[in-house]
Simulated assay, not measured.
Amino acid sequence: KEGHSGPTYESLQAVFDLQAFRPAVNLSNPTITNISFTLYAVLGVNEKTQILTTFLWLRLYWHHEFLVWDPDECNGVSRISLPVRQLWSPDIIVYEVDDDVSQACPYVYVNYTGRIRWDRMLRLVSSCNLEIFSFPFDVQNCTFTFGSYMHTRDVRVSPAVTFKEMSLNSKRYLEASGEWEVVDILGETSILQFGIDEWDIITFWVVIKRRPVLYVVNLLIPSSFLMLIDILSFYLPPHSVDRASFKMTLILGYTVFLLIMNDLLPSTANGTPIIIYFSVCLALMVISLLETVVITNVLHHSSMKYQEVPKWVRVVILKYIASLICYRWPEPELQQICQYLGDLHTHLISLQKENELQDQWCHVGYVLDYLLFRIYLLLISCYAMVIICMWCIWINQ
């Protein structure tokens, strides 16, 4: 109408009165609802209960055949906002959701062609089949199925944008936050049939992968260091008691490490994560301790007199296994005695020279000690005189 800036309240009231009815002139024609969403954040993944908590930006489009006007007759107004509670809206739900905390915008945008856009922010707690065998390098594939709750084929659903665009938008918002990142978003439309009723649904597959840096730094690297120390402990003398004590201390430390890091490890009954590597490492440490016990027991026999090595041990171990591992036998006893005497002579000479040098350094240390002690006494005396003089001056004032 002339003089108005857009559709009037009187013209919209008739539309508001039809809120309970699907906005189609011919009810045999279905209402097409276009759906798109952006995965803004992955708030939590509970492997034990198989629950995924996400935050979505959901956008719905549909056509309202009773809200059409000519912009030329309304001073060029081509879009208006209306309260969503006054209009019919499709009852689109997510089938996998256990809990839905929706912060829907109370208004919708209406185009002059009757196209409506409704934005919703959803905090979804949904079920997802979580596989953690490859933890912390796991990739999860969760499903979001959108469809009408009450309406059958009279409400159709389809994607508003391409799945690639949804994936790119989600990657842009999710790449700088949280433990997870989006790999891809795929989808397809299908028909859900239950008896004689059919529902139009659209299924999205959201593929996310974990960022493993936290777990590598806090779990894998410390565990690898402990295993490296356990390997280096084999360079300790086998007959030393300290070797067995060291290994037992290492096992105790590794057990405490696993208890502290237990909260970071996922738990589920559906699969065993690759982080069982920790239990394998602990088992290997126990095996290395048992090996030390066995070797210590064997070496104990060498101190027992008149205890002959069994023949099968000499053949199997001293002949075949020694050749296999390239074990070098010690030199003849006479050469060893000569070598020991030469080493002893060299050692005595080095001890004599070391004693002489030690005496020289001791005298240097004594001289410097006396010098610094006297300088210290001089500084203390000067400081005491300054304090006494200042005290006297203060009293005389």
Results as ranks from 00 to 15, higher is better:
residue 292 T to F: 04
residue 205 W to I: 13
residue 285 M to S: 11
residue 105 C to K: 09
residue 197 D to C: 02
residue 13 Q to R: 13
residue 6 G to I: 00
residue 31 T to E: 07
residue 312 W to A: 04
residue 150 M to Y: 07
residue 357 L to H: 14
residue 277 Y to Q: 05
residue 274 I to R: 02
residue 80 I to F: 02
residue 128 C to D: 00
residue 14 A to Y: 04
residue 111 N to F: 06
residue 283 A to C: 12
residue 78 S to R: 10
residue 131 E to C: 04
residue 60 L to N: 00
residue 162 T to I: 02
residue 287 I to S: 08
residue 46 N to K: 00
residue 357 L to E: 11
residue 266 P to M: 07
residue 321 I to Y: 13
residue 218 N to W: 10
residue 229 I to A: 10
residue 376 Y to K: 10
residue 21 F to W: 04
residue 261 M to C: 08
residue 21 F to L: 05
residue 34 N to S: 15
residue 127 S to R: 02
residue 2 E to F: 03
residue 13 Q to M: 08
residue 45 V to I: 11
residue 371 L to T: 07
residue 343 D to H: 11
residue 106 P to A: 05
residue 341 L to R: 13
residue 180 W to A: 06
residue 354 E to N: 15
residue 273 P to D: 05
residue 22 R to G: 03
residue 82 L to Q: 00
residue 331 E to Q: 11
residue 391 W to M: 07
residue 314 R to F: 05
residue 375 I to K: 10
residue 17 D to Q: 11
residue 71 P to L: 08
residue 234 F to N: 15
residue 336 Q to G: 13
residue 51 I to Y: 05
residue 129 N to L: 12
residue 387 I to Q: 05
residue 58 L to S: 06
residue 222 P to E: 04
residue 396 N to C: 09
residue 137 F to P: 01
residue 232 L to E: 14
residue 358 Q to V: 03
residue 166 M to E: 00
residue 314 R to Q: 08
residue 367 V to Y: 06
residue 178 G to E: 07
residue 170 S to D: 06
residue 143 T to H: 04
residue 31 T to A: 06
residue 212 P to M: 03
residue 69 W to V: 02
residue 149 Y to K: 02
residue 99 D to Q: 12
residue 225 F to A: 11
residue 187 G to H: 03
residue 8 T to P: 04
residue 70 D to R: 11
residue 211 R to K: 15
residue 149 Y to P: 00
residue 196 I to R: 03
residue 331 E to G: 14
residue 291 E to L: 11
residue 371 L to P: 02
residue 181 E to K: 15
residue 107 Y to W: 07
residue 5 S to I: 01
residue 354 E to G: 15
residue 200 D to W: 06
residue 186 L to I: 05
residue 257 F to S: 14
residue 132 I to D: 10
residue 40 Y to W: 13
residue 259 L to E: 12
residue 325 I to G: 01
residue 133 F to D: 13
residue 81 S to K: 07
residue 213 V to W: 10
residue 252 L to P: 01
residue 208 I to E: 06
residue 57 W to H: 08
residue 240 S to Y: 05
residue 206 V to R: 03
residue 180 W to K: 07
residue 199 W to V: 10
residue 75 N to V: 11
residue 93 I to W: 10
residue 111 N to G: 01
residue 325 I to V: 03
residue 382 C to F: 12
residue 354 E to K: 13
residue 92 I to V: 09
residue 318 L to G: 14
residue 317 I to A: 11
residue 75 N to K: 08
residue 61 Y to E: 05
residue 185 I to V: 06
residue 297 N to D: 07
residue 236 L to Y: 13
residue 397 Q to L: 09
residue 118 W to G: 04
residue 360 Q to F: 14
residue 373 F to Y: 09
residue 119 D to S: 13
residue 25 V to T: 08
residue 274 I to C: 08
residue 30 P to A: 09
residue 3 G to H: 00
residue 138 D to F: 03
residue 70 D to S: 06
residue 294 V to L: 00
residue 395 I to L: 03
residue 364 V to A: 09
residue 351 L to H: 09
residue 363 H to F: 08
residue 44 G to V: 01
residue 70 D to K: 09
residue 59 R to D: 00
residue 77 V to S: 07
residue 30 P to S: 04
residue 58 L to K: 01
residue 393 I to P: 04
residue 397 Q to T: 11
residue 62 W to M: 02
residue 174 L to S: 14
